[in-house]
């Protein structure tokens, strides 16, 4: 078994297993903690709708907050949208998704993927620089922040190298790319990458509470 077969085979299987088990464990653990029920008289109804609305409304800051948060928001959007374009728009990734889900769609042109990859990498590097230099981010940051950055950045870098055939044989670059993705999968449930699931819960909860009070969400 060569490195590529290992990366695509047992390594990916083990990584997927850890990803799924960790994800389920972390979510179930939170869900099993008893819930505190709010029995205050609601100002208006529609708390659940308010909760659902908040899941989406918090994607964009309220207008009075936008100027002061512009840089962070721009970097976050560039990274997230860039990653989404790469993961769901490139032909090899669509083939990979099809291989386990049966779902397929038309890929985006290569040039779009390459530009998205370059922008994403630039945003990730800027984010790291900002985290290391901004007094607030520097103080807040811990191992999770830096390791999450690393496991997110590695697949982007190795993917770009594989596409450009730079540094080694294509098979070797592809194997390293898949292995870096496996590391990403393994780390996902343990660190802050889980915000992609947990933030839905926290936004919803806050949306329900604030809507109950008639307050802005």
């Amino acid at each position: 078994m060569d490195l590529l077969e290992f990366a695509r085979g047992p390594a990916l299987q083990v990584a997927s297993l850890i990803f799924a088990a960790g994800l389920v464990w972390r979510l179930i653990h939170i869900f099993l903690i008893p819930k505190k029920t709010d029995i205050s008289e609601a100002r208006f109804g529609g708390e659940k709708m308010g909760g659902l609305r908040t899941i989406f409304s918090r994607f964009v800051h309220h207008q009075p907050f936008r100027r002061r948060t512009r840089n962070g928001t721009l970097l976050a959007y560039t990274t997230h949208i860039g990653l989404a374009i790469i993961v769901f728009g490139s032909a090899p990734h669509i083939l990979f998704i099809e291989s386990f889900s049966g779902l397929s769609w038309t890929p985006l042109p290569n040039v779009v993927i390459h530009v998205a990859g370059a922008l994403t990498l630039a945003a990730l590097l800027t984010s790291l620089g900002r985290r290391l230099s901004h007094p607030v981010l520097k103080m807040l940051s811990n191992f999770d922040d830096y390791f999450t950055w690393l496991v997110t950045t590695l697949p982007v870098v190795t993917g770009l190298l594989a596409v450009a055939h730079v540094g080694a044989r294509y098979e070797m670059l592809l194997a390293i790319h898949i292995l870096s993705f496996n590391v990403f999968l393994i780390w996902f449930p343990f660190g802050k990458l889980m915000h992609s699931f947990i933030a839905i819960g926290s936004r919803y909860t806050t949306g329900v509470t604030f809507t109950r009070r008639g307050a802005r969400v």
Binding site: G72, V136, L140
Partner: peptide, 9 residues
């Protein structure tokens, strides 16, 4: 407690 991503915003 689980949701914070240390964005500092």
């Amino acid at each position: 407690m689980e949701a914070c991503v240390h964005c500092g915003q």
